[in-house]
Nucleic acid binder design. Sequence first.
DNA 1: CGCATTAACTAAACCGGTTTATTTAATTAA
DNA 2: TTAATTAAATAAACCGGTTTAGTTAATGCG
Lengths: 340, 340
Amino acid sequence: MRLTIADIARLADVSKATVSTVLNDKPGISPKTRKKVLAIVQKYGYRPSHVARSLSTRRTHTIGLVIKEIVNPYYARIIKGVFDGCTDNGYTVLLGSSELAPPKERQSIEKLLNYGVDGMIISPLQGEEIDFTYLARLTQEQYPLVMLNNVQNYATHVVDIDNVKAAFDAVCYLIGLGHRKIAYLTGPASSVHNSERLTGYQQALMNHNLPITQKFIVTAGSYIENGFRTGKALFSDDDDVPTAVLCYNDLVAIGLANALIEMNIPVPERVSIIGFDDIDFCRSFRIPLTTVHIPAYEIGKAAADLLIRTIDQPAANPNGYEKVVLPALLMERNSCATIA
Amino acid sequence: MRLTIADIARLADVSKATVSTVLNDKPGISPKTRKKVLAIVQKYGYRPSHVARSLSTRRTHTIGLVIKEIVNPYYARIIKGVFDGCTDNGYTVLLGSSELAPPKERQSIEKLLNYGVDGMIISPLQGEEIDFTYLARLTQEQYPLVMLNNVQNYATHVVDIDNVKAAFDAVCYLIGLGHRKIAYLTGPASSVHNSERLTGYQQALMNHNLPITQKFIVTAGSYIENGFRTGKALFSDDDDVPTAVLCYNDLVAIGLANALIEMNIPVPERVSIIGFDDIDFCRSFRIPLTTVHIPAYEIGKAAADLLIRTIDQPAANPNGYEKVVLPALLMERNSCATIA
DNA sequence: CGCATTAACTAAACCGGTTTATTTAATTAA
DNA sequence: TTAATTAAATAAACCGGTTTAGTTAATGCG
């Protein structure tokens, strides 16, 4: 059985309170006693129980991170950012994932809450069936929360890029290359990023007096297969086909590119493709992918910093919510070309 | 402030003990009382503090997972497997990562230990500078541990594939295609998987009376860039160049393929390539990659199951350690060809 | 020198659950 | 009717820390 603070107190011939004071580097202990206690602690390799400390301080020094998909290189970078941000500040991460299913999201959040995390970073799903009242209750209780995308009608900290602008810029870039028939392969309906990117896409077309064709807004998803299948369907129709496609993310873009190549439609000669995220693999793909770089690691780190700041100085944000917008950058590689 | 069990007891006009008994579904409570308590619990949305429960039961229902790299699609699948295996059994995962640095590994492990995880799944680093005495101490204390690779001179549960055999089979496959000059691009020295794969590679060559050339065993690493740079170096020498290369993992293989293509050396026509892991992108790479499929998700899940079994029934394994070996499978795709 | 102040240390309460030993009430057996 | 047994509920101790209020010893000051 592990040693407790009482054991150390007995061994050092002092009280539990003294041991506690020494270990927390608080004043009021003579150098002699401090040394004596530390020697015993050292000798027996004593490590205080984090659980007991959490109970009495009512702080677990643990934060919850709820993402949408574990097996997704984009979220891997988010996780690493959050992880590093927490480790630097003496916090630990409890991981949760909704795997794109609203009930699972809620389950994850409640579970983390039960575990007593001091705050949470959430990449929330959105949609008709989603009920934010339980999150709203948290906010009312001043529970520290940072979201990784905007949430409608809900005041909270947010760390994200400007998705509307990013999509807008990407589409303008395509228009600048001469494209007029530009499609958008959407992500899952539950994704806020997706709806914002769609908005940016539409705004860019409108700004250039180009028509918004429903046929060119195609529901895909977030995986390679989605891009592949949607691409096949979209380009099987011969007479009216886009010359450029903005994709919800890189995986969809890769799937699309593979579909086009399989159909003998050269990329970028006949179709230009832009993705989102800039996952590592973009550069190594058969056609190095032009994509909107999202600083996922930095987002994760900024979210952790903001959250921990909020936890450690609750008074510092008297009802004000921060919105941290990080820069996204279009990475021009080889999947886009001027139109012939 | 959140409600405590004392609040509920007061509201239901019973004792704390009764509330606790009801909530843990233990016998000895009249149906009437049970109903009354549950009604109050329901009404106020009471959720017991996990921390307090952990302190008194001395079980946190949390396990630690220490991997080598967060941003690595292979480990993402491991994480998901562990995650699912834990969630199914009412456990939660605390994540740690060594990021390939021994001191960080140790830090992570000690941190998780302090947090009171009930057991740990570790993908341990190995090498001269690594000191396993602290892990050995844990094992002596019957601390539940599952390793994701073999550890020398150290009795513990292990869940893994047979790396020696997998590499052996892969090289035999290349030899079967007519290759005689086969190189191996190694992973990091700290990787046990790497040394086992190297062994399998050497055994296969020996079995076929082929020479083991030091020049053809090249230190690469675990990232795309490593494969790229090592590939460039290996193939810049014109007169004695391999016709096939086994790579430590898929990322290295992708880097190598990119390097060869850039050098106008066609794959697989002039050089065959085999990777390890079968990450998602293998299929979407410019040359669909032949690779050894490692069931990472299943490994994670099996490790979680084994660990939780060990935690929940400490007596069940009276000093016996399980070694779970899952099947690896060579996925024949387009990066290998018979020699001209 | 005696009293006020400060420094060093400790006893005991507390955090929010679980569990053991005990009490109380209800039922059964004689 | 009464003693013995069983069922239901509870009081109190406990898990391993932190913290508050209080005690004791040492120091400062007029």
